[in-house]
């Protein structure tokens, strides 16, 4: 399998008053090409910081260290800011969380499209660019005539989200990163957006990297899933393994903790305890204070990754099966 993105030992830290806050702790992850990979975790687990670490869009108090972030054969970590700027949006596009707010309020959508295009490529005429925009807007079920002449405030949240998705495709990126693409939307609008993204994936074969805490969305879209907890990736597997035969205790508990329309509601159980503070993370395995299968070794040494069936899992439960 080809990997479009290979992250090697990425560390992201923020300098805060209390010291340094390690939000992404030595993460290595490969994103397969042509598939939808999901990164799942609760808020504060570092998943958005991981994205910022990949694209170097951290706030000024953020620091990155890594053994390389490879996009195809380019090491993003080695590029100058200008070189990286050219890759962002042109080859790697990002739909940010609450993307509804990332449209410029004083530009009409049509002008926004032109501005974005011209920031990256020269040469094509206005008509050619707008023709392409029309095609993409139709793909997300919007009326191009109306939308291109509208200001963002004239569109509903769901429409703005679809505009952003269309806009992210205007330069034909090779990788589309979606950070919580459907949070803050109504149920029906959410499922419409998911259907559109699936259609785009199917028709264009576009690789997607979905970052979310919303497991039902993952169940519906993803091929592969990486589970993140307290700054670390703890389990990586295909979506069916994650939902039916997950190996890492946290993954199982998380799936049992989602309210669902199916099954007996009394089967659903909350995860005891709460996520750790990253200023003062637990020793050993970060999940050990909440883990029902804790062993003596768990609070002493951080587990390495083990291959178990189809999963890659960092958990001492599988330590001696090897």
């Amino acid at each position: 399998m080809n990997h479009i993105l290979r992250i090697k030992n990425l560390i992201v830290e923020y300098a805060v008053r209390e010291g340094s806050l390690r939000v992404v702790n030595n993460v290595s992850l490969d994103v397969p090409e042509g598939k939808i990979t999901a990164l799942v975790g609760e808020s504060g687990c570092g998943k958005s910081s991981l994205l910022d670490g990949i694209l170097r869009t951290l706030p000024p108090n953020g620091y990155i260290r890594s053994n390389g972030v490879w996009f195809k054969d380019i090491n993003l970590a080695r590029l100058s800011n200008e070189e990286l700027r050219r890759i962002r949006w042109e080859r790697i596009a990002v739909v940010f969380q609450a993307a509804q707010n990332s449209l410029n309020p004083v530009l009409k959508i049509g002008d926004h499209v032109l501005e974005t295009y011209h920031a990256h490529r020269k040469g094509e005429s206005k008509d050619e660019i707008l023709a392409k925009a029309r095609e993409l807007l139709e793909m997300v079920n919007l009326d191009p005539k109306q939308v291109l002449n509208s200001y963002p405030y004239e569109l509903s949240g769901g429409m703005k989200q679809r505009v952003i998705i269309a806009l992210s495709l205007i330069l034909d990126p090779e990788l589309l990163i979606l950070d919580e693409p459907t949070s803050a939307l109504d149920t029906y609008t959410q499922s419409t957006i998911i259907d559109m993204l699936k259609k785009i994936h199917r028709e264009k074969g576009l690789t997607m990297f979905l970052v979310t805490h919303d497991l039902p969305v993952v169940a519906e879209m993803a091929d592969y899933v990486a589970v993140m907890y307290a700054g670390k990736i703890m389990e990586v597997a295909d979506v069916e393994t994650i939902f039916y035969k997950a190996k890492y205790p946290y993954t199982n508990l998380l799936i049992k903790a989602i309210p669902s329309l199916i099954g007996d509601p009394s089967d659903r159980k909350p995860i005891p305890g709460s996520p750790p503070s990253l200023l003062n993370p637990p020793s050993g395995c970060v999940f050990h204070p909440r883990c029902p299968f804790r062993r003596p070794i768990c609070d002493k040494k951080a587990p390495p990754f083990f291959h178990v069936d189809k999963s890659l899992v960092a958990c001492w439960l599988y330590g001696d099966t090897k």
Binding site: N141, S156, G158, M159, T187, Y188, T189, Q190, S191, T192, I194, D195, D214, L215, P216, V217, A219, E220, A222, V239, E240, F243, I255, I258, S260, L261, I262
Partner: peptide, 22 residues
């Protein structure tokens, strides 16, 4: 249209199409 945390069901779901999304 409600998402279901079960990949086998979720991936085969057919939602009822409405005349207008808005």
């Amino acid at each position: 249209a409600s998402p279901i945390p079960d990949p086998r069901i979720a991936k085969r779901r057919r939602k009822i199409e409405l005349k207008s999304l808005e």
